[in-house]
Each structure stands twice: as C-alpha cells, then as structure tokens.
Design a protein around this nucleic acid. Structure first.
Lengths: 338, 338
DNA sequence: GTGAAAGCGCTAACAA
DNA sequence: TTGTTAGCGCTTTCAC
C-alpha cells in the first residue's frame, strides 16, 4: 500500500477558516459575497492546506459535469485535430471542458465510446463518425441527450447536425475540372456507405454531366493514405486513364500523391488533382494542391452552440449545412491531349 | 426546469433483479462469479432499464479515476496530435482513459490546467510545455503525483522525463549540412528559453565548428508559421545570406518555406533547408524536406509507462533521451557558390 | 453467496 | 449571513 498522504477537503478548509463547509462551498462557487476578512481567512486556509476541489464529488453532487464529450475517429488526422481544437476553444469560451475520445477508426468503438461518454455524465455529445452505421449505434445515439452529429450524417439519428455541403463541394470540383477541359474524370472516395462520400460523388457527377464530361472511374475505401496508394495503382493500370482525379479526403490524397510521384506521373501535367479537405499544408505540396476548403473552425463553434441549445431548450434538431469553397492552386491544368 | 427523466441507478437494477446493490456492484466489477441465473437476471435488468453506471460516483467512491491527464500546447499541430494519439493508444492498452487539455500556447494556462487536472483526480499527468517556466509552475508540477514531463524539460521539476536527444539532432543537421559543403549556416529556433531549442542549437554549432563551418545567424521565436515567415524575411535581408538553414520545428518551417516560395528563393538551389520534426507530410513538400525525425509513438508509450511506475512504485525519476535520426530528402544540396 | 450500512467530497435545500 | 443536514450513485468493509 502506498503511503496515502493527507488530502485536505472542504471540511478541513472550513475548520481552518473557522466557518462552515457551506460557506466555503458557496464562496468557491461565487454564490456568495463574503465579508472581506472571512474571504481572506478562507483563501488563506485553502492556500495553506493546498486544497484542491474534487471535481468528481462536485459533479456527483450537482448531477452535471460541465463537460462535453467529443468523439472522433482519430486525432492523428489534421482535419479532426483542427476540429477538436475548434471545439475545445468554443467550449472553453462557454466554460465547458471537453472529454475527447478517439475511436481509432473502429466501428465497434464508436458504440463503446458513446456509452463511455454517457457514463461520464457529459452535458452533451459531439459525435463524428466515419463508418458504416449499425442500428445499434443509431439507437444508442438517440438515447443520448445533447447530441450533435458533426461532419457525417447518420441515418435514423434524430439530433442537431452540423454538416458540410458535400454535394456542392463535389459540384465545385467537377465544374473546375470541366472548365479546364477535362472530360474523363475519376473519383477516389472514402467509404462508400457514407452519405458524405455519396454526396461528393453526386455533385461531381452532376457537374461533369452538365458539361458533357463523365466520371469514368470510381473507387472507394477507408480514409487512409494506403487507400490513396491503392487508388493510384488502380488509376494507372486503367486502359485509358482519366485526365483528372477528385479525391474525397486529405488523408487519401497523401498516399495518392506519393504513389503518383514514385510512379513518375506528372501532376498536373499528366493528371490533374483536386481534393476535398484543406486541413493540411497543401499549399506547400508539389504541386500546391487545389482543394475544396471546409470551414472547420466554424463547424466546431456551431456544434457547441447547437449542443448547448439541445441540452437546455427544447429539441430543436437543427441541421446546418456549412458552405465549402474552391481554393485554386496548381494541381489542375488542362488535360495533356487537349 | 427541464423535464428530468428517470435515470436508473444501481439500486433500481438491484431491485429489478431481486438482489442487493452489493451483488450488482461486485458483479459489474468482476469481483465475483455469480450463479448463471443471478447473472442473467442482472444482465436483463440492466438492459431493460438502460442502466449506465455513473463514473463520477465510482471515482469518488474509489478515490481514483483510472484516467491520466495530458497537457499539450495545442492539438492543431501534427506533432502534438501524433503524440496525443500515441498516448491515447498506450493508455487505452493499460485500461486508462486520457483527459486532454490544450493550453493554447499560453503560459498562464499551463499552470491553470495542471490544477484542473489535479482537481479531476487523475492518476497521473503527462505534461508538455512550450514556454518560459515560472517557479510557480515548477512548484505546482512538483506537487503533482504521477508526473511525467514530455518533450520539453523544465528546470527545477523533479519527475520522470521523456525527452529527445535534441543535441544530437542539431549535430546530425550540422553534420549533414557541412558534408554538403555549407559553411555559413543559419539557425531558426523556437523560444530561446527552452532547453530543447538551446540543445538543438548547440548540436548544430558544435558540428559546424568541427567541420570549420559557422552558424552565422540565429533567430528565436514562437512555434508558429508566422515566426517562420519573419525568419524568411530576416534571412533574405541579410547582407550575406547563409547557404543553409536549420529550422527547429515543423510549424516554423511551414511559414518559412511558404515565404521563401513567395520570394522566389530556390530550395535547395539557393538555400538548403533541414528541419527538426518530421510529423507532417514533409515528403510531399516542394522540395521534399530533409528532416530530423523523432520517434513520437515511442515517446507516448514510454511516457505512459513511466507515469504508471511513478504513480505506483517509488519515485524512480527516470529520464529517457530518445534518439532521433536524419531523414534525407531533397532540401539539402551543395551551396550554389561551391 | 449475499446484504446492510458506512462512507467518498461536495452541493443545496431548509433552518436558524 | 451562516450552519445543519440530507443526499448525489457507487464501492467496500463486515456480518450473516
């Protein structure tokens, strides 16, 4: 047994300061304006004893923890990292802490962590999924108060949602590509089950169709660099390779571009590239990558707002579609054959 | 008052299952092997009621939370994001949760968050600083059990530490540069008060000296892209610009390289570049950046191990220096004049 | 194997 | 204004 050194509690502070626990508690919670000398004595006692409030006790007693949960697939991805930073900042501004859980891109953990969050009595839950969605998950989510879905919609979940206008993002990409004269376009997507993936594709396809172009190749897979590398291989082994590629995520484009470099494929000389996601330092890449940029910080802020609304007021179940924009850089050029 | 719907507790489960709270509690904590039918009844009751344990109550009762605190400057930096991911993974493997706090690069928040962590009764604290260190901080840190300092040493703090061999990193950079014939080298550092910054510089300087080269320019500043841009400006306005630059962090090099591009400076044609930190997709940059790579995942894992040791056994106060390595890419070339 | 009951440290009625 | 006291939901001796 390790030596358990004396840990002072509210009681000790009260005794030392010669007041009751209630007084100290209220004083600490600013429920109360105290005569200067009483306040002084309490402050002194606290410092002297090295008193540190126990947040678990407080949460238990109050029945709430002033903490919000954030569940994301992984923090080792700039997009989610930036999102987490934005959520933290917004939460901090509201006096809320944030409890972060990463599901390591594992579907089973999504369910597990929703539960974990509930066990922690968070006042709200911000949830980002990246997987095929089971009804079990939807069920658990629907049982969670103060839920806000971010970035990715989940069918059957009733809650507020903050999403991107994925369709428009795809459309912008398609429009940009066709404006440059591309007629044979490839789409490298994330998981095909996700609404975001399908929407981005649909936007691309419609924009292409409108300009008389075509999406001649589609490939879906996880949000990983490895999937990007696979995609590059697949692309290059095509009988007639497309002249442009729209990549659905920043993680994927890393592997794709790397593989393209290694294969000696000129970008944009031989293949134009545009990516949905502008979280990393894409402007320093070779070539600087043209991208669809999403307002990450705003997404975080809005999510916190909606969570607060959802957990306090009536179930508004607002759904927000944040606009995305095209950032032109140097990875799109006219097709070589034109 | 919002409608507070019924939230089942252990008591309700016990009543429904027809056993006592004790039995349920023990069963849930696997302290106990129960007759199949009793277990069955409890499981059913839990599912039926939608019982979710209250972790605050549990932590309060047990006096510990099986959670470790991680304090980092910001999550919006790939290095820290990767570190956080590594810590999470290592903690998860030990059955520990992690409570993340980011200090937003503010020195005052470092102190604030150390306290916050203690209030949360974490079993240990992993702390990454990026600031000038006050004695107040050192004091607070020394009062924290299970403390492990990561990445950056803090004078006067007695605890286990997991650091990089910054001196050797600087030395590797200097050696590489001088091998390519550079004689006039610049050092763009992080905050000058930090031991890591000074060590990296010292390594560079010594390696340079040994090869008859010299560090002709030094500039220090925050870990930010803006500092990198300033550095580029300063570098270019020098009467005799150096032929090579060693940049102390990945964040800084982003701004630096960007400014260099905009100024039309060829890298490595006119200026060779090497950076300490290989967290981002530096291999895709233009040019691919030669870097000193640190074992981030290992740092996270070792930190968790040491924390466990520190919070359980005697205060070992181990200090680990993790080795770094040179990753040659394409941003270093012989100086133009040679 | 099972249960009764005493806390864990704090908050918030309710009294004084 | 300040104090008394009953919980918050769970764990954990200790007795049965």
């Amino acid at each position: 047994m390790t030596q358990r050194r004396f840990i002072p509690g509210l009681k000790d502070v009260a005794r030392t300061a010669g007041v009751s626990m209630t007084t100290v508690s209220r004083y600490l919670n600013a429920d109360l304006v105290l005569p200067a000398d009483t306040a002084q004595r309490i402050d002194t006692a606290i410092r002297q004893l090295g008193y540190v409030p126990n947040l678990h006790a407080r949460s238990l007693s109050r029945g709430r923890s002033d903490t919000i949960g954030l569940v994301i697939p992984t923090i080792a991805n700039p997009f989610f990292a930036l999102l987490a930073a934005a959520v933290e900042e917004a939460a901090e501004a509201k006096g809320l802490g944030v409890l972060l859980s990463t599901t390591s891109n594992s579907a089973s953990r999504e369910l597990q962590y929703v539960t974990r969050m509930r066990r922690n009595q968070v006042s709200g839950l911000l949830f980002v999924s990246a997987h095929y969605h089971t009804s079990e998950l939807a069920q658990a989510l629907n049982d969670t108060r103060g839920l806000v879905l971010i970035d990715e919609d989940i069918p059957g979940v009733r809650s507020s949602k903050v999403l991107y206008d994925n369709y428009h993002g795809g459309w912008l990409a398609g429009q940009h590509l066709t404006e440059y004269g591309h007629r044979r376009i490839a789409f490298i997507g994330g998981p095909s089950e996700l609404a975001s993936t399908r929407d981005r594709f649909a936007g691309l396809r419609d924009a292409a169709a409108q300009a008389g172009a075509e999406v001649v190749f589609e490939l879906y897979g996880p949000y990983s660099a490895a999937h990007g590398e696979d995609a590059a291989r697949a692309l290059l082994s095509l009988a007639r390779t497309p002249t442009a590629v729209f990549v659905s995520s920043g993680e994927i484009v890393i592997g794709l571009l790397d593989a393209l470099h290694r294969a000696g494929v000129e970008v944009p000389g031989r293949l134009s590239l545009i990516v949905f996601d502008d979280a990393g330092p894409l402007h320093l890449f070779n070539p600087p990558l043209t991208a669809i940029r999403q307002p990450i910080a705003e997404m975080g802020a809005r999510a916190v707002e909606l969570m607060l609304a959802a957990s306090q007021g009536e179930a508004a179940e607002t759904e927000i579609r944040l606009p995305v924009e095209l950032v032109k850089r140097a990875s799109v050029a006219p097709p070589a054959s034109v």
